[in-house]
Structure formats: C-alpha cells, structure tokens
C-alpha cells in the first residue's frame, strides 16, 4: 500500500482516536488548571504546613514518570476496591501530573509580580484575598499564558501514553490499524502527521489568544 492508501484506510479510526485524544487533553488540562491554581496559591500564600504539603506534592509528581503515575491509578487502585475505566484513570493521572506542572508555572508567574502591587492593594483597604483576586491573579494569569501553552502541547503529546492501559485514543487506534494492515511505518507516519498538525493548530490558537489579551507592559519576548 502506498502512503495515501494507508491514509484513506486508516482515516476513520484515527480520527476517532484523535477525538479521544483531544477530549483527554482538554479534560486533563482543565482539571489540572484547577488543581494547579490550588497548589500554587497554597504554595505561595498558604500557612507553613500547607505550603510544605503543596511543595512536596508538586516535587513528587514532577519527579516521577507519568507512565508510572498512570499505572498507579489504573493497576494500583483496584486491589483497594477503586476500579477506574481506562479513560477515567488516564484523565485522573494526566490531571494530577499536569496540575503539578501548572502549579509551578503559576507560582513563577505569581512571584514575578512585584511585591509593591500587593502593598498598594492592601494600602487602599483591600483584604489580602481581594488583592490576590483582583490585582495579583489578573497579572499572573497573563504572564502564565506562554508556559501554559507549552504545557498544553506537552500534555497533548503525552496523552499518547494512555494507549498502554487501553484508552482508545489516537496512538491506540494507530497501533490497532497497523496491526491489521502491517503498514507500520506509513500508519505511524500518518499518526505523527496528525499530531504535528494538531500541535501546530493549537500553538497558533494560543498565540492568537495571547495577542488578544495582551496589554501594554505585558509583552513577552520569545
């Protein structure tokens, strides 16, 4: 089979797989963002035990391979009566993993806001919480867009790992197709192209978003 024939044959299943991949990515990035926000705020503003806990959590997750985390959620929990579907286990593992990374990006962004901003907020009678919500976070979130974009792309690519526990995403579908048509190179090449296109499309989307919310004084250099 030529490459184009392979493309025609595998289009259907691979597109199904792509859908799951994107679903997996979006769910995980959103849950991860929620977790990341909590961890980052805890690490920067929390009391000592909370700060310590958040730091330890982030370091442990960042220090261990994603694959092992996926195995823990999928194979490690059933003996304790927690049985997750492959998709659930994958979303959970990716969310926790991404949450730890996003927390670090957010923390960096929060700490890059000069301390005078909080002082000014307090001095006009805001509470600390008001200062965080209406002064610090709007600035930190703008700063975090570029690393966050990277994180999104990473996550998108890492979701390919989910095939190992049987999540029917792009990688799993490619394997399935290849195992039937024996066109390993062409099928995986096609899968690679799909990833490439999706990554480029998302990168463009994010840089568009970045330009939209840009305000003077918050320009980034590449």
């Amino acid at each position: 089979m030529t490459f184009w024939q392979v493309v025609q044959h595998s289009w259907g299943p691979l597109m199904d797989g792509l859908q799951v991949t994107i679903q997996l990515t979006l769910l995980s990035i959103v849950f991860g963002l929620a977790l990341g926000l909590i961890l980052a705020l805890g690490k920067v503003y929390g009391l000592k035990p909370i700060r310590w806990f958040c730091t330890a959590f982030i370091e442990i997750i960042r220090g261990t391979p994603l694959l092992v985390q996926i195995f823990i959620f999928y194979f490690g929990l059933p003996p304790y009566g927690i049985r997750l579907s492959p998709l659930e286990a994958a979303v959970l593992a990716f969310s926790v993993n991404s949450g730890a990374y996003q927390a670090e990006y957010l923390r960096g962004a929060i700490q890059s806001i000069p301390s005078g901003q909080m002082q000014a907020a307090l001095s006009m009678g805001m509470t600390r919480w008001q200062g965080i919500i209406s002064i610090i976070m709007p600035q930190a979130l703008r700063r975090v867009i570029p690393p966050w974009t990277n994180e999104f792309i990473y996550l998108l690519k890492y979701t390919s790992l989910a095939y190992i526990i049987g999540t029917q995403e792009l990688m799993a579908q490619a394997r399935f197709v290849a195992s039937r048509n024996y066109e390993y190179f062409h099928t995986y090449l096609f899968a690679a192209l799909i990833y490439l296109v999706v990554v480029l499309v998302f990168s463009e989307m994010f840089s568009w978003l970045e330009r939209r919310v840009k305000i003077p004084g918050f320009e980034y250099h590449k």
Binding site: A178, A191, Y195, L196
Partner: peptide
C-alpha cells in the same frame, strides 16, 4: 519543530515498528 510536535511514543514506534519496512 517537527520533533517537538510529535509524541515521543510515536517517534519510538516509527523507529521500532516502522523502519523494518525498509
């Protein structure tokens, strides 16, 4: 750009399962 955009897993599969075709 290309290598950064493709998941490592896919690269690995291309090398291991794909290259034998050649």
């Amino acid at each position: 750009r290309v290598l950064r955009s493709i998941p490592l897993l896919v690269t690995l599969f291309l090398l291991f399962y794909g290259l034998p075709s050649f």
